[in-house]
Design a protein around this nucleic acid. Structure first.
Lengths: 196, 196
DNA sequence: CTCGTTATTTCATGTCTGTTGAAATAAAGA
DNA sequence: TCTTTATTTCAACAGACATGAAATAACGAG
């Protein structure tokens, strides 16, 4: 008949912060940002709500910490720019995106990020800058030629279309197609934007 | 020193319902769904909060009524399927989308709808069915041939990419390009998906 | 080992949001 | 004129996030 958990610091050295972060990640991935309440997370972590504010400041802060990206999406795309073979560039980028966004370990967080970029102004700003400076710009420099920036923009738009239809909105038939089919259908279009 | 507004029905026959709807539309378009509170709308309309529930049931209901679409987006795209000229189909659809989504009178509501489809499960379901049944299916039937459905899916994905990058996320350079430039950059890719 | 300091934790409270039921008032109709 | 109905505000609730105070354990200096 010990009193469950009294006030004050707990015995031992439990990493409560990480406990909270893990609970939050699970909830956010399963239910999305809006649907999850701090009390849900606190309940899962076996902790009072106020402790979340203590560690993370706000719900936004918690989301940021819980969803810290396992990979830098910009890097995933841009890495392929090193390879000098321009003819296969579209396919390589496409496959990278499909791999990373489809991976159960990394994909869900990236998908949540994309959804967040639509809702939250701060996240939107962040994505806009990241995509503009780190992706579109570099692609433009890489492909060169007339209208390089516009063509890079078109390329980005098509990639965004894939991500939103397949992973965020989950529109059929794109959402259920196997990677090879996606590549077959989209590679020519993407390559056209890159190739000039 | 008349008491401002007492309880009970007002004199005259003011269309309070429409007043509320207009105030809500302005707010939703300016600030988005989450950021707008029912008390904001009630304040703008000079009305008690409870009256909103009386007329619209819930915040969702208010949003639905305020954002009732001025045009059916599906129709905008599908209308062009009547014209037998397949070679210009991509360009015609593209220009229709750019016109309707860019029109200050109709565009903002469509943009809000797209953002809502990412956040709200009900809206998501709605959009998924509408796009799947009314757009992708019909395009597939129209273009025919092998992989017709997959190619129609790819077409839809690219259109979604345009809408999200240009109107929702507002990524540069796509967001600032004039319609002619957008058409020049994307028509070939879209036509490739349609053409087989 | 002891005692002040610091980090962690819950409690209590405040403010804000959407929603609901009751009461008041004007319009509509017999 | 008088009953019924539609419109409107008031009052209150449950649940959300956030914050300041209080309690308690760990830590470190001597």
């Amino acid at each position: 008949m010990n009193k469950p958990v009294r006030r004050g610091r707990r015995a031992g050295a439990p990493d409560t912060r990480e406990l909270i972060r893990d609970a939050a990640r699970a909830r956010f991935l399963a239910e999305g940002y809006q649907a999850v309440t701090l009390r849900d997370v606190a309940g899962d972590a076996g902790v009072d709500v106020a402790l979340i504010s203590y560690y993370f400041g706000s719900k936004q802060g918690l989301f940021g910490a819980a969803m810290a990206l396992p990979v830098n999406p910009a890097t995933v795309v841009v890495a392929e720019l090193e390879d000098p073979d321009v003819d296969t560039l579209a396919e390589r980028m496409l496959r990278n995106v499909l791999t990373v966004w489809g991976d159960p370990a990394t994909g869900p967080q990236l998908q949540a990020l994309a959804a967040m970029a639509v809702t939250d102004p701060r996240m939107n700003e962040l994505v806009r800058e990241a995509v503009g400076n780190e992706i579109t710009q570099r692609i433009a420099v890489r492909i060169g030629g007339a209208d390089a920036e516009q063509r890079a923009g078109a390329f980005t738009a098509q990639m965004a279309g894939l991500i939103f239809t397949r992973y965020v909105l989950r529109l059929e038939p794109i959402a259920s197609m196997v990677p090879d089919d996606v590549v077959r259908q989209l590679r020519p279009a993407l390559q056209a934007s890159l190739g000039g």
